[in-house]
Design a protein around this nucleic acid. Structure first.
Lengths: 233, 233
DNA sequence: GGCGTGTCAAGAGCAGTGCTCTCGATTAAG
DNA sequence: CTTAATCGAGAGCACTGCTCTTGACACGCC
């Protein structure tokens, strides 16, 4: 991909990366809402108007950062799941990788999982990168199901009505064959995972389970049980 | 409390309320990050500098709004729990009330449970109001435990190490006597509840379980099971 | 080689922001 | 009644995102 044709093209690509890097650094200091194009341009030794040659607006720059963040988190999650590990170990590894990325990049995490930035609505191009973590988690469950090692959820209530349809749609697109009961619990575990991370990063756990790594590991283990992922032999 | 002595005091209290109301309306339109003192003052027919007589800075106004939001949500949660209802019904009622408040006041919810506002750190005065919902939920569990109707969690792993100490601290301050296993799961259910609501409000559920009310009710019911809250007779 | 076309950074300028200061007018307290 | 505190108004500072124009530069075609 680095077969940039002309020198201008290569310079442009490089500067685009440099702008995003600087913006990311700004993000870590000021937060998404206070991301200032002028400050970015100042740090780069450019004039603010020059930035608009690369990003037509502040929102477009934000979108680029959002997509990059989703992709980085998605990549971290995908890398954590290993072929030679059992699904339960993989489940916990992915959860831990997601948290580790979030803790290492709190402002980028806030950018994608925090309150939406005012006056900004995410374009459709963010949907696919945004779904990567969920895809990895569902893939693990599907894998466990196909291996026949998922414990049957005899006590779990089956979804009904609208929820049943939604779960069926989810199954069709991401985890064919996986029982609705399991899939429903997977969505619950998914929301629990990110609720936990958000609470930790946004300071809601201070005074109760902070530091929260022990709680995190315990919770992901219980969620693995909840899903019927068998304990390691 | 309305025995404001002088006319000036009463006018001041009234204007303070009016400023917060207008700011809240602004919040609903623009979001927290774009809350503009000038816009608030314009809507009130005042000059922007006059606002500083009432709130020394934008952050102080934000703090007031945050505390009000925590209190409103806490009140909604407290009102949802009724003496004449069984704990499980109360659990679901409180969860539903929290979600209903969040859906009705999405920007205020984002203000308190979303990403922290850049350059703003919540003062200690917000801690107490922030804990009201958790206190209500823990109170329900404590009540169920003292009534002896909590199902024993035979399959649940007990917390150990640091987590066990944190849970013990939680028990001492908010739910004496409640078993550590139950309390640990309560924290999990707590994070799940707010993770679910945040995902719904922040648009993360679009494409999967949206609209999310059926999922919400199903999830809170499963979390009630998870905690050992017995089904209604 | 030279020449047009498109890209580039620079700068001025607009409307908006939070915040500070000073200025008279009003009001409460001594 | 007098004094001190409080009030709203207004000007002004430094900052923001963004637009528009200007002049310089590099590329590709002839």
């Amino acid at each position: 991909m680095n077969a940039g044709r002309t020198a201008r093209d290569r310079a442009r690509a490089e500067l685009t990366l440099e702008i995003k890097d600087t913006a990311r650094r700004q993000l870590a200091i000021e937060g998404a809402a206070r991301l200032s194009l002028r400050a970015v341009s100042r740090e780069l030794g450019m004039v603010s108007s020059a930035l608009y040659r690369y990003f037509p607006s502040r929102d477009e720059l934000l979108t680029a950062l959002i997509i990059d963040a989703y992709d980085a988190l998605g990549a971290a999650a995908e890398q954590a799941a290993r072929q030679d590990q059992d699904p339960r170990t993989n489940w916990q590894a992915v959860c831990r990788a997601v948290r580790a990325w979030a803790v290492a990049h709190p402002h980028e995490y806030a950018l994608i999982y925090g309150s939406p930035v005012a006056g900004y609505s995410a374009p459709p191009s963010t949907i696919q990168p945004a779904s990567r973590v969920a895809t990895v988690l569902l893939g693990l469950i599907r894998q466990a199901h196909e291996a026949g090692i998922l414990a049957p959820l005899v006590d779990a209530p089956a979804p009904s009505g609208v929820l049943a349809e939604q779960i069926a749609g989810l199954a069709a697109s991401a985890a064919p064959g996986v029982p609705a009961k399991v899939l429903t619990r997977a969505v619950i575990a998914w929301t629990q995972l990110f609720g936990m991370i958000s609470f930790e990063l946004f300071g809601q756990l201070v005074g109760s389970v902070d530091p929260s790594e022990p709680f995190f590991d315990h919770a992901t283990a219980q969620m693995a049980d909840f899903l019927g992922l068998p304990p390691v032999a």
